[in-house]
Design a protein around this nucleic acid. Structure first.
Length: 534
RNA sequence: GGCGAUGUAGCUCAGCUGGCUAGAGCGAGGGAUUCAUAAACCCUAGGUCGGAGGUUCGAGUCCUCCCAUCGCCA
């Protein structure tokens, strides 16, 4: 099997002290849409997400509640899993850094890197914030006049024995790789950011923290191999998940990942440190690190102080009101995939829902199935081999859209690919208007034309639904059911499924309720559903 | 402070290496129509392309300065 027959996409593993919110859901949705599209394309796909659990604050949070760290992590990891299930995400695995399968691999990776000398013992000198028990960066220290940014207490220069990763050694190779692979870091603005920074020079990075081996909290994490006085820094521990999850006999062929979908805040780790570590381990580099931007809400940044976080109860409210697929559609097509942030505004949500889903996809399905019901007793008419009518070369139109969508999805241009799906729907609407089958149907002698037109419409909509399915699996599967063409995803590759003429004349076409009922633009925002804490 | 980016129609944005009368989607206004979810279809956008100067036969598209917003700084 060649590389292009497989597809491996990841999300970051999420900090287990967090409660799932729109940020986690958005990143994971992008990966889900990509994964679904690739699966439908016929590629053997692996979609990984999970939780990052080894932080001291996890131990502290658990202690506050009087439970063990793992019990706390279990509870929160489940909250992520439940949220992701609600949004219909199709991840193939959910990795947790506290699992042995991960910890054992990390231990092995670190040993190997120590062996080659790319991880070595050195001295770390930095500004220590005693009140927070953490180091602050040189820049932060200077900005706060060498006082704790949190408590204002003076910072002290402190030196610590640490293990380091020889990042500097790989700077040139990384730069060469980025230049040879223009899409390695996306979008372009992010790539430029990284390139600019690499050119100012890379320094070796600490990959461990000193711990007291007798401290119970020290056991929460991964200790440095053969040196229990140090613990693997959580960031490094976390990055390895992409590899550890598939570093098994049955999954090894998935590496390298095709895409690491991340938020822009963690770009440096994924676009620089991680690739260099992979080089040090003599592993292939991922195809793409895609760093999206953030959602803001009603024009304002989301923050704890404003209390305007778009949390699960809010998203759930939208799902209940408009359907899970409507939420997925809005996030996937209107989201911040570029270098600038995007606004989750209720008015905009309803506008796009009505324009794209109610008025376009849903309405086209309705009018076509209705005419089939009315003029052909609900049985799909026969085009009798006619594929071109009134200047519409249907196989050419649908093939072009499918090809375009495939090309765009390969670059993770999800909004673009979805527009290709919509473009077919819009052509169908234009076609109905241009050919007026509802007028022809009044003339018995023109029923052959009506049959051809409606077959064309139904078949084009079926092909459109294949593209749209990645973003809206639930509603598109319903459409497949109504058109009598259930699809077993992965069984037949997309290109074959999208071949013109697979719909069989005579098949009963079910009219059904509106796929996407029109929404009232004046209605207030949906009421949040559920406990904000969960 | 250092490095970088962005500022184009009401909104979200396309406009690559400078060159026909500056574009798309959504919204809004109008028209025509009825198969459909008062939907689809057609027409309409009077935008100083942030401001000022400059280079050029010719500049959203290059240069300088200014204003505004934003990102990154391990």
């Amino acid at each position: 099997m060649t590389r292009t027959d497989r597809y491996y996409v990841t999300t970051p593993i999420y900090y287990v002290n967090d409660r799932p919110h729109i940020g986690h859901c958005y990143t994971t949705l992008l990966a889900d849409v990509a994964a679904r599209f690739m699966r439908l394309s016929g590629r053997e796909t692996f979609f990984l997400t999970g939780t990052d659990e080894h932080a001291e604050k996890v131990v502290a949070a658990a202690a506050e509640r009087g439970i063990t760290p793992i019990a706390w992590a279990d509870r929160n990891a489940h909250a992520f899993q439940e949220a992701f299930a609600e949004l219909n995400f199709s991840n193939d695995d959910f990795i947790r850094t506290t699992e042995d399968r991960h910890k054992d691999k990390v231990d092995a990776y670190i040993r190997a890197l120590k062996e080659t000398g790319d991880i070595f013992l050195g001295d770390y000198e930095g500004w220590w914030d005693g009140s927070q028990e953490e180091y602050v960066t040189e820049t932060t220290a200077r900005e706060h006049d060498f006082k704790s940014p949190v408590t204002g207490r003076p910072l002290v220069k402190r030196t610590e024995r640490n293990y380091f990763f020889r990042l500097s050694k790989y700077a040139d190779r990384l730069l060469a790789h980025i230049e040879a692979n223009p899409h390695f870091i996306a979008p372009e603005a992010r790539r430029n950011e990284v390139v600019g920074r690499i050119k100012t020079g890379l320094q070796d990075v600490p990959v461990s923290r000193a711990v007291d081996p007798n401290d119970e909290a020290a056991s929460w994490g991964i200790l440095m191999p053969d040196d229990p006085g140090h613990r693997v820094y959580v960031w490094i521990d976390a990055l390895f998940n992409y590899l550890s999850a598939v570093d098994t006999d049955d999954r090894r062929a998935y590496w390298p990942a095709d895409a690491h979908v991340i938020g822009k805040d963690i770009l440096w780790f994924h676009a620089v440190i991680w690739p260099c570590m992979l080089m040090a381990m003599d592993k292939a580099l991922p195809g793409c690190v895609y760093a999206h931007s953030y959602w803001i809400r009603e024009g304002r940044k989301m923050s704890k102080s404003l209390g305007n976080f778009l949390d699960m109860p809010t998203l759930r409210g939208y799902c209940n009101e408009f359907g899970v697929d409507a939420v997925r559609w809005y996030l996937a097509t209107q989201g911040p995939m570029g270098a600038t942030d995007a606004d989750f505004a209720h008015g905009r949500f309803v506008e796009m829902y009505n324009a794209d889903l109610a008025n376009s996809v849903g309405n086209a399905m309705s009018r076509v199935s209705n005419m089939i019901a009315k003029y052909f007793d609900g049985a799909l008419p026969d085009a009798k081999g006619v594929t071109e009518y009134a200047g519409h070369d249907w196989p050419a139109i649908t093939n072009a859209a499918v090809e375009s969508a495939i090309a765009k999805m390969n670059r993770l241009d999800i909004p673009g690919a979805m527009q290709d799906g919509l473009s077919i729907v819009r052509r169908v609407d234009g076609y109905v208007h241009a050919t007026e089958p509802f007028k022809l149907a009044k003339d018995e002698s023109r029923m052959g034309d009506v049959a051809a037109i409606l077959y064309h419409c139904a078949e084009a909509l079926r092909i459109a639904s294949l593209i749209l399915w990645a973003a809206m699996p639930e509603r598109m599967e319903e459409a497949w059911k109504r058109f009598g063409t259930p699809v077993v995803v992965g069984e037949t590759p997309l290109k074959e499924l999208a071949q013109w003429g697979r719909l069989t004349p005579g098949t009963p076409i079910e009219k059904g309720e509106a796929l996407f009922p029109r929404a009232d633009a004046e209605a207030p925002e949906p009421t949040p559903v559920g406990d904000p804490a969960g």
